[in-house]
Structures are given as C-alpha cells and as structure tokens.
Design a binder for these strands. Sequence first.
DNA 1: GGCATTTGACCCTT
DNA 2: AAGGGTCAAATGCC
Length: 263
Amino acid sequence: MKREQSLSFEFGDPSAQDAMGSASESSYSYSPPGGAVFGLSPPESSPRSGRNNNRRRDRPSWVRLTDTPYFDGHLWRKYGQKKIKDAEYPRLYFRCSYREDRHCLASKLLQQKNDDDPPLYEVTYTYEHTCGAPPVSFPDIVAEPPVSTDGLVLRFDSPSSDAWMQQNGRYHSTSRSAFMMLSFGSSSQTHDQQPAVFRSDLEAGLSSFPTEGLPPAPPPANDDDGDMLSKLNSFAYDFDNQMHFGDHTYLPHNSSNYDHDDH
DNA sequence: GGCATTTGACCCTT
DNA sequence: AAGGGTCAAATGCC
C-alpha cells in the first residue's frame, strides 16, 4: 500500500550539510536530526525582518514522498495555500501548532504530485521541531525478546504516531491497528541504546477522537533513564546514514559536498 | 466565543 | 519582474 520513501536534505550552507552527517558542532543555527533537538532559541528576527539572515535557501529542509502526508507524528496548523505555476495541484503550507507557545520553527509544505489512489504527495519539511512535543500517540510499551540480537525490542502499540493528525480540534486516523518497534543494543551499533530497527505497521482504517483531554507536551527531554517516549524523535534519527519511520526508509544525501542537482 | 481554516494581499527571494 | 512564502482579516466550525 505505502510507497518506498526517499529523503533528501537541502542546505544553502555546505557546512550545515556536513553537520547533518555527523555529530560535529556547527555555527549553523539548525540542529540536525540526531543532535539536540530541544532548547533551541528562535532566530533573533522574524523571516520578514532582517536582510540576509534566514534566507529561504539557507533554511534546512528535507523532502519526503508519501501518500499519508498528514500523519507524521506532529501537530500542524495550516497557514496558507497557493496555486503554484505549472503545478497541477495547489501547495499547502503548515507550521507547528506550538509555534507561538514554544517558538517552534518547524514547518512543512505539501505538494500533491498525482491523482493516484491514494495520491502521492511531496512533503518538504523545514527546521526540526524544537517544541519538544511528543509524537501524537499514546502507545503501550511492550518489551519483547529481540529477534536475532542481544538487544531489547520495544513495541509501541496503537495508535501510531504516523497515523494521526489534528484537524478541527480532533485527531483523525487512517490506522486501525498500528504499532512501532524499536530495537536497542544491537551489536552492530557503535553507540549505546541506539535503535537497529524503527518501524511501524499500519492497516487502513478510520477513526478519530477529540484533542481536549490530551496532556500538554512535556518539557525538553533530559538524560534521565526511562524517558524513552520524549526521546522518540531523536531515536528515529540516530542512525548514521539511514532512518526508518513507519514503514518509510529515509535516505539522507550524505555526500560531503553540497549538491543542487539531487534529482 | 474561541479557535482553526481560507484566501487575497503583501513582501521576500531569485 | 515573476514566482513563491507568509501575514492577517474574514469566514466557518464546534
């Protein structure tokens, strides 16, 4: 049902591209996936103020192709829609629902690519979430014996963060039975507690529930043991060159050179 | 009434 | 100057 995904990172600053592929520090304002995604300060000026800082082409962004563009584990508010020249479908603009509350700069841009069933969308994400909001799910964590390693497997039962979105004050889902799995401690990992597997299995379905009773997003994660859920996003990115989210495989461009001709 | 979405205008980037 | 991204007032929904 779902398509294979690809992910590309685009930066105006080559040094930022380098930072994406390693843990090295960068003067670039963006904190790449795998780094500390919490506690970032917003830019000194809004996008409309200032001149050369925060230019569009300098903003970190990555692209995802999906047929479920709304279900990515975060809450988004739509703030614009525009007909794009030579594009068959309008472009939709979303920003993090916590933009004001927590100065989260994350935004995404939705572009429908075709009219298949289901339609394919190109989703361009800009800036990592700094809101600290957990994935939109309330999973039951189940420890299971690992399949073939000496590690630990955690299963996050339904609903999956990949299957829910907020719309008109309610969460909506196309998943009836979803779960995610994390595997820790694989001997192939060079760092402690990095996942070897991170995936979810989704089945088509439809349901929704109101958002009123949901707890607020937690404060930025600390390093205490047991705070697994608040680290979920980080875990998802803690691969060297590959990330799995849901049944999507993300393949960040990892060349050390900035490359405009990436497709 | 409060909040999210829509949509035309404005402004920035290329 | 054209095209694209964001703002903000208007509108709709709960």
